[in-house]
Structure formats: structure tokens, C-alpha cells
Nucleic acid binder design. Structure first.
Lengths: 131, 131
DNA sequence: CTGGACGGTGACGTTAGCGGAAGCTAGCTT
DNA sequence: AAGCTAGCTTCCGCTAACGTCACCGTCCAG
């Protein structure tokens, strides 16, 4: 259950390079244990890394992602911290809702283009590849 | 109806700098008319620019966006071109569907965090700011 | 005991995406 | 004529996010 990973394990696993992982650490996004000088990654580290990559896919900068990660690890015993957390989380939610909207709009447009193109081809008797 | 824009008009309007607009032109994403050396933008140019900015918000590179723009301007009289178009459009659709998914997942997680935090605060008798 | 395979630390290189200043021109406007 | 304002080009600068050495230690397998 407490599986550990080496840096190359993780890299291969998530399809990135060790260099990238070290870079994230340099930027303060990760802080794996060390055995001597060698980095050793836990489940939580792995999960964090996955969140990082997700953030990147959504187009966020590493700096943004760093703040984002903090949302997942907060001392919930401190009322004030939770307060702050809530507003930060709501900010992110706002951003993502906007992005969701943008994506959906774009999808609609592209599907329109697809439909129009396909019907254009059918009309010309061209056999249309399936969806 | 055939309104024209200067580069600063457009920049102010879309909240970017003229420099950025010129940069997009350098990268082949725009090709406005010229009056002498001065750039003059049409509605279509403006629309393109908006698409560019949308692509950026979604985290695409300028190179990606360039290809993406071509999807909106194709010679529909050439069957082969339309064929190619359809497959490209479908590719993009696939990408965006994935992104849609990612965004939704992330949103769910954040909403969970929000709910949990809020109920935690309420339980402690703290007055919780509204959504 | 030696050659890989793996891990580590600098430190410099690279690409993308603009920012910003220099130096020039054209068209008002006073 | 002189001074503004806008726009143009050119080029150097800068940040982000890694890639790519170079060089060093370590732990097996042969």
C-alpha cells in the first residue's frame, strides 16, 4: 500500500522525463523524500504530479498550479485558513466555469463545421467516413 | 457594415497590445490589408483575432491555433479539401472533448472541497460567506 | 574490478510569446 | 515651420519550461 517510486519509474509511468520532474521540484511543486541524495516518491507525490500535469493540460502556468495544489492540502483546523481556502477555491471554480463555457462554444462551432462539411460531401455523392 | 479598425483600436478593444497583434501577424496568423505601410483590419480579421485569443485561453500554442484557424476558411468546392477538413475538425473535437472532461472532473473536485470546507466552518459556528 | 544503468548537481542552451526602446515616416494641427 | 500623434521596422531583452551536456558517485553483473 505504501508503494514507493523512483524518479524514472514515475517519469516512464506518466510519460514525462526525469528532468521535468526535477524541474517541478525546483519550482517548489514537489518535495519528495530523499534517501541519501536519491529522490523517493510516495503515492501522494504521484497524485500531486498527476494534478500538475492536469493543470498543464488546462493551460495553467506552473505558478498557478502551485497555488492550485495548496487547495488540496490545507490545515482545516485553522478557521482563517479555511476561509481563505474557500475564496480561493471559488476563484478557481469561476475560472474553470469560464473555460468550460469556452470549450463548449468551440465544440459547437466545430460540430457545425463538421455537419456542414459532411452534408456537403454527401450531396455530391461522396462517401463520407464515419464519425 | 464594412467597418475598419486600426491596430490600436483593435488592441484596446480586445485588451491586448498592438505589439501582440503584430506578433501574430509575424507568425502568420493574421494578414490585414495595408494602406501604405499601415495595417487596416476588417471584420473578418477581428473575428480571426478573437478566435486566436480563445485558442490561447484554452492553452493552445500559436502554431496549433494557426492550423485551427484554417478550419474556418476552406475552399468547400474541392472535395478533397473538405475531406481533409472533416478529419482535422474531428481531431480537434476529440481534443476538446478530452479537455471538457478534464475541466469537469476538476470542477467536481473543487466543488467537493468547497462543500466540505463550508460545512466545516458552519459546524464551528462560523458565518460562511455566500457563494 | 570494471563497465553499464541509474541518480544527482550545476550550468548553459533553446523555444515560445511577447515587451520595450530606438529610429524613421506620414499626416495633422497650431 | 514645428511639434504631435500613430504607425512601421528592427533588434535586443526577458520569462517560462524544460532539454542537454558535463561531471561525479554508486551499485550490481560479468
Amino acid at each position: 500500500m505504501d508503494t514507493l517510486y523512483s524518479i524514472t519509474d514515475l517519469a516512464r509511468d506518466l510519460d514525462i522525463t526525469p528532468r521535468t520532474i526535477r524541474h517541478y521540484e525546483d519550482q517548489g511543486l514537489l518535495a519528495p523524500q530523499r534517501v541519501g541524495t536519491t529522490r523517493v516518491y510516495s503515492h501522494r507525490d504521484r497524485a500531486r504530479l498527476i494534478l500538475i500535469l492536469r493543470g498543464k493540460r488546462l493551460g495553467f502556468s506552473l505558478k498557478d498550479i502551485k497555488e492550485y495544489l495548496d487547495l488540496y492540502v490545507v490545515d482545516t483546523s485553522q478557521v482563517e485558513q479555511v476561509r481563505v481556502l474557500v475564496t480561493k477555491v471559488r476563484d478557481r471554480i469561476g475560472q474553470l466555469e469560464e473555460q468550460l463555457d469556452t470549450v463548449q462554444t468551440t465544440l459547437k462551432e466545430l460540430r457545425d463545421i463538421e455537419r456542414m462539411s459532411v452534408s456537403m460531401l454527401e450531396q455530391k455523392g461522396v462517401d463520407v467516413p464515419m464519425a
